[in-house]
Write a protein that binds this DNA or RNA. Sequence first.
DNA 1: CTCCTGATGTCAGACTCTGACATCAACCAT
DNA 2: ATGGTTGATGTCAGAGTCTGACATCAGGAG
Lengths: 212, 212
Amino acid sequence: MDEMGRWEPNARGRLEQAAMALFETRGYDRTTVEEIAARAGVTERTFFRYFADKREVLFGGAKDLERLIVDTIANVPAATVPFDAVIAAVQATASIFEERRGYARKRRGIITTHADLQERELIKLATLASATAHGLRRRGVAASAADLVAELGIAIFKNALERWVDDKEQRPLSRHIQAAVEELKAVATGTGTSPVRVRTASPSRRRSSKGR
Amino acid sequence: MDEMGRWEPNARGRLEQAAMALFETRGYDRTTVEEIAARAGVTERTFFRYFADKREVLFGGAKDLERLIVDTIANVPAATVPFDAVIAAVQATASIFEERRGYARKRRGIITTHADLQERELIKLATLASATAHGLRRRGVAASAADLVAELGIAIFKNALERWVDDKEQRPLSRHIQAAVEELKAVATGTGTSPVRVRTASPSRRRSSKGR
DNA sequence: CTCCTGATGTCAGACTCTGACATCAACCAT
DNA sequence: ATGGTTGATGTCAGAGTCTGACATCAGGAG
């Protein structure tokens, strides 16, 4: 019909699926690129034409995420405070994840068990932070503040995502983001969280200062 | 004599120095492990006995950093708020860097030009965050809050370190940390930084939608 | 029909990293 | 000292990742 090339279409997608499937069963490091390629019906060389390295096959979605974040920041009302702009961007990504909680969990399971993949995940997040900061600067936010707020956004994002995939009640991601934002505000102003203290201060007497 | 083994002592140190020197001149990816090992007077195999992989040779100091942070958090006054405990830990590391600004810059130059190394740097920082959060929890801070505050600490750390190595006036790192802390507080409460706005409010008219 | 293009395949090879086994000086116990 | 043990290193073979160069071949353009 339309896009019938000489080969099966969507080689990239097939590679991604093959990789996920194999990583799940054999584990990441006991899966060779050759195996992934074979399962997708191509050669190893072709794998490396679509993905810069073995890890990248799990991070195809990052591009979309970045676009969404940048767009959101660019279009937030002009009077918005930087922090809120970043939160808006984080919230904007929520729906992308919301739809695929199962996939997100599966993927996260693979990533958390392999340091290599965690590294890649972290740099993807750093890239998002960088794009966020850049977006803020383009709107007149001072460079140092932009960097810092962007980092904050990522911290919230990570934190909320973590809670969300583990949440047995399956509350929506947006709610977890909101919770993280509030906790951060409380914690940064010092108002919110109780003082650091020894857990039980011993069983018997423990009269005076019990906290704050 | 005293510690005369069969070979030159301090192979690890020699490998680290050889690596730094070669990375500086040839660049990280055009330097092979074999070259590093040869310059240090050992074999490639020995390199991999000291370092898990090629990148690790630049991150030997991370262990000390972690110890220092964990100790600081463990010994902070009981009435300290979590956020301040983390800041104290970050400040505690300042002296380590302060003494070797030159080395820090050199090393940072190498790292920032190679994605591989940035990934490793990020995961080291994440490890520090994790250790920090753990220390906080041992003192009775709720898990979610501990994670978030630790993450904040890392954000501040990164931000301050960045400003410090670039600071032409060479003001002390501790001062940059303090500045980052204050900026973060301001930004998180919304009080501090001016609203996001177009840099100059435009030359002429261009009022409503300026394009999605 | 011919040329060009794009997605693949084929091949060779550099480089990273690991497992298995060999060496040999220093140290220790007898 | 004699001999056994230990620990840091060397040697070797090989799997796996990733790259460059070149070959193929269907489909589209002219």
